[in-house]
Deep mutational scan, measured.
Amino acid sequence: MIFPGATVRVTNVDDTYYRFEGLVQRVSDGKAAVLFENGNWDKLVTFRLSELEAVK
C-alpha cells in the first residue's frame, strides 16, 4: 500500500522517470503525486498507482 510520505520507485519502463525514486505527496483516484528532488530542482509528477512500487 502506498501512502503520503512513502518513498516510491517508478516501475513503468516506458516512462521518462523509470527507476527514479521520490516522495509521495498525495494519493487519490488511483493516482499518486510524487515529488522528485535533485540538487537545485524539484518536480511533482502524477503516476497511476500501478506504475509505482514502495521502496523498502
Score class of each variant (00 low, 15 high):
residue 1 M to Q: 11
residue 1 M to W: 11
residue 2 I to V: 06
residue 3 F to E: 09
residue 3 F to N: 06
residue 3 F to S: 08
residue 4 P to C: 08
residue 4 P to H: 05
residue 5 G to A: 02
residue 5 G to S: 04
residue 6 A to G: 06
residue 6 A to L: 09
residue 7 T to H: 10
residue 8 V to Y: 01
residue 8 V to N: 01
residue 8 V to E: 00
residue 9 R to Y: 06
residue 9 R to I: 09
residue 9 R to T: 06
residue 9 R to W: 09
residue 10 V to G: 01
residue 10 V to R: 01
residue 10 V to A: 02
residue 10 V to L: 02
residue 10 V to N: 01
residue 11 T to N: 07
residue 11 T to G: 04
residue 14 D to F: 13
residue 15 D to C: 14
residue 17 Y to C: 07
residue 17 Y to N: 04
residue 17 Y to R: 05
residue 17 Y to L: 08
residue 18 Y to T: 02
residue 18 Y to R: 02
residue 18 Y to G: 03
residue 18 Y to M: 02
residue 19 R to I: 03
residue 19 R to A: 10
residue 19 R to V: 03
residue 20 F to A: 09
residue 20 F to W: 15
residue 20 F to G: 04
residue 21 E to A: 07
residue 21 E to T: 13
residue 21 E to H: 09
residue 21 E to Y: 11
residue 22 G to Q: 01
residue 22 G to W: 04
residue 22 G to C: 03
residue 23 L to D: 03
residue 24 V to L: 03
residue 24 V to K: 00
residue 25 Q to W: 12
residue 25 Q to S: 06
residue 26 R to A: 13
residue 28 S to K: 10
residue 28 S to N: 09
residue 28 S to E: 13
residue 29 D to L: 07
residue 29 D to F: 09
residue 30 G to T: 05
residue 30 G to R: 04
residue 30 G to N: 07
residue 32 A to T: 01
residue 32 A to F: 03
residue 32 A to K: 00
residue 32 A to I: 06
residue 32 A to Q: 01
residue 34 V to Y: 01
residue 34 V to C: 03
residue 35 L to V: 06
residue 35 L to C: 08
residue 37 E to M: 14
residue 37 E to N: 14
residue 38 N to E: 10
residue 38 N to T: 11
residue 38 N to C: 15
residue 38 N to P: 08
residue 39 G to W: 08
residue 39 G to T: 09
residue 40 N to T: 12
residue 40 N to A: 12
residue 41 W to S: 10
residue 42 D to F: 15
residue 42 D to H: 15
residue 43 K to V: 14
residue 43 K to W: 11
residue 43 K to I: 14
residue 43 K to S: 10
residue 44 L to C: 11
residue 44 L to Q: 06
residue 44 L to P: 06
residue 44 L to R: 04
residue 45 V to K: 08
residue 45 V to I: 10
residue 45 V to R: 11
residue 46 T to V: 13
residue 46 T to L: 12
residue 46 T to H: 09
residue 47 F to C: 04
residue 47 F to E: 00
residue 48 R to W: 15
residue 48 R to L: 14
residue 48 R to F: 14
residue 48 R to V: 09
residue 50 S to A: 09
residue 50 S to M: 07
residue 51 E to H: 07
residue 51 E to T: 04
residue 51 E to C: 06
residue 52 L to R: 00
residue 53 E to V: 10
residue 54 A to G: 06
residue 55 V to H: 04
residue 55 V to D: 02
residue 55 V to T: 07
residue 56 K to R: 11
